[in-house]
Structures are given as structure tokens and as C-alpha cells.
Design a protein around this nucleic acid. Structure first.
Lengths: 164, 164
DNA sequence: GAAAAATAGTTGAAGCCTAAACTATCCGCA
DNA sequence: TGCGGATAGTTTAGGCTTCAACTATTTTTC
């Protein structure tokens, strides 16, 4: 994955469409932030972004979530969640319980330790993001939020067409 | 100790700091586009994004690049490039040559077939991106480009501080 | 000129991720 | 009741990615 696709493309001959330049800049921004967050999660908490994301899902749903629900919310495959859940369970941060009404399904929830650990990570994470994006004014952040919303809508529309 | 019970990832319920909501939307946008591009590269060309990115680097440098240069430009590890290069060589899309002046180094360049294949992929890629982002007006795209530039600058500034 | 430091690249272990094939269970329906 | 299709999750094979340890070579330094 190109961390700085834009720089890489800097000396590319013109002829790329406008949209490609926009896409590369979007990718660059995201990758810069994501790489830094991964690095800090690893350095300060010895964990990874996927693990953090999974804990965040559970935090939002104290009643527990099935593996399938997690997989849909995180937009990753089922098999992926199987592995993540196994590691988090081994670390004692989450626990599984087989559903009373459906013996195929099992729901995951945070353990007390998981809740406590995630709270620490989450607070730090919030600070990191605020620090990294803090150079933007409130007005800029709002404009960006709105435009990214438009971009998201555009992409989803594009997916509809192709996948129909 | 900060205990923010509202904090979570994915599609951002309220309670997050402004910046986190912005970050999550940025991430969602990028992931949507990236997943679709990966899917199409796989479906239509039986290849992957990292392979495509590596070919793109070589395309821009017809004189060849050493593995180390590629690794720096793509901002990935050395070992990563070793593996990618091995697969691309096996597919006959790139060729290696040991440097005449430094027996440690070897430069990679596109084969004729690699050049031809990349041209096909690149044209398709450009079309996909244009299609996915085509729902934005020119004005919106320009505004987004500018704001993302600002965001990038903010992040780089944030990295300086932390990493100094 | 030889030891030491730096550089180019490879390898191995481990985690993340997917698609596809598989098992187990549930549900609808005749 | 029993069959067939849907659903929940696991497994497997393979690619991507990193870090750390390693080999080979070059450069620096004394």
C-alpha cells in the first residue's frame, strides 16, 4: 500500500484525471493518520488497530454482539472476526457466550478488564486524532466533513451501478 | 483517568470529539474506494493493489529502480518489496538486474509484457476512480482537494511534534 | 590496509485479511 | 415430519505487511 501515493506520483506526467489526483490525496491523508495510530497503539498499548476496532464495537453494545454482527459492522469477513475474537479472548479482554436461542450463534462482550483497557486506549486515541487534525480550523473541519459525506454518497452510487 | 463511555469506532455516534468523527468519515471514504479498487483489480486483472502500485513506480522510472528505492517510494518495508518483486518476476512482468557498480544492489524494470499489462490496468483504474468520484462537481472536487491538502499539512505537523 | 559502521537485500515468525469450502443449526413449507 | 434453503461460524490456502535477525557488500575511519 502506498503510504504517500501523492508524492510518489509527483513526477508523473500529467494526463491523470482530476479524480485520480483527488483519490491519491485522500489515500495519502488516510494512510498518514492510520500509520501513526497503528504505531502508537503498538508502542503504547501493545495492540493493533483491528483489535482496537473490535473492542470499540463491543463498547458501544454492552449487551454483546454476535460474531456476524461484528463482521458486518467492521466490514470485514467472517473468518477475520473468528481470528480476532480468538486472540482477544485469549488476552482476557472479551468473553463468548453461546446464544440461548440459537446454538449456531455466540455473542461477544467485553470483560471488566476489557472495558477498563479499552477506556485507556480510547482516551489516548481520541487525543492522538485531535492532535493530528488539530491544525484545521473548526470551519475547515466542518467543510471537510460535509464534502467527505458527499464523496461517500458518490462512491456508494458508483457501487450500485457496477454491482447491479 | 478518562472514562468515555460513548467512545466507539465505525460510524460515529455523538459523543466523539469533532476530530474523531472527521477521522472516521475519512477512513470510511478511503476504505470504500480502496476495497472496490482491490475487488476490480482482482476480478478483471487477477492482480492486487500492491502489485499494481509497484508496477506504477516502475512505469514512471523506465531506467529501473532498486528494491530499496521502491521500498522508500512505496513507504513499505524492504522485506515487503522482496516478496512483491519475486511474485511479479515470476509472472514475467518485471526483471531484475544486479547493479554493475554495487553487487549488493539490483534494479527492477518492467518487461515489455509488464509495460503492456500495466497500461491496460492503469487505464481501467483511471476510469474506476472517475466513476466512483464522478458524483462530485468540479467545484466540490477542488474544495476537497484543497481541504485534504490542509489536513495533510496538519498531520505532518503533528508527526513532527511527537516524533521530534 | 584492516576494523568498524553503514547499506542492500533476504528470511522467518507472527498478525491481518480474503475467498471458498466446510460443519452445524435453524427456519419455512409441504 | 422431513426436506431444502438460509444462516452462524470455522477452517484452509494464499497474499500482504511488519519487525528483527541475518548475509553480503560497500564505505568510513583510524
Amino acid at each position: 500500500m502506498l503510504l504517500d501515493a501523492e508524492t510518489a506520483l509527483a513526477d508523473a506526467p500529467p494526463g491523470h484525471k482530476d479524480e485520480v489526483r483527488l483519490w491519491l490525496r485522500l489515500l495519502t491523508c488516510t494512510n498518514l493518520i492510520e500509520a501513526e495510530i497503528r504505531r502508537r497503539l503498538r508502542a503504547e498499548f501493545d495492540t493493533t488497530l483491528p483489535r482496537f476496532d473490535l473492542l470499540a464495537q463491543l463498547e458501544r453494545h454492552p449487551g454483546g454482539l454476535t460474531l456476524g454482527e461484528i463482521s458486518r459492522r467492521m466490514m470485514v469477513s467472517n473468518g477475520n472476526v473468528t481470528g480476532l475474537a480468538a486472540r482477544l479472548e485469549e488476552e482476557g479482554l472479551v468473553e463468548r457466550r453461546v446464544s440461548a436461542t440459537d446454538r449456531r450463534a455466540q455473542s461477544l462482550r467485553l470483560t471488566a478488564r476489557g472495558r477498563k483497557e479499552f477506556a485507556r486506549q480510547s482516551a489516548a486515541h481520541e487525543g492522538w486524532v485531535a492532535e493530528l487534525l488539530g491544525g484545521l480550523s473548526l470551519v475547515e473541519r466542518e467543510a471537510l466533513q460535509r464534502l467527505l459525506g458527499r464523496a461517500k454518497a458518490s462512491v456508494r452510487a458508483g457501487l450500485q451501478e457496477g454491482g447491479a
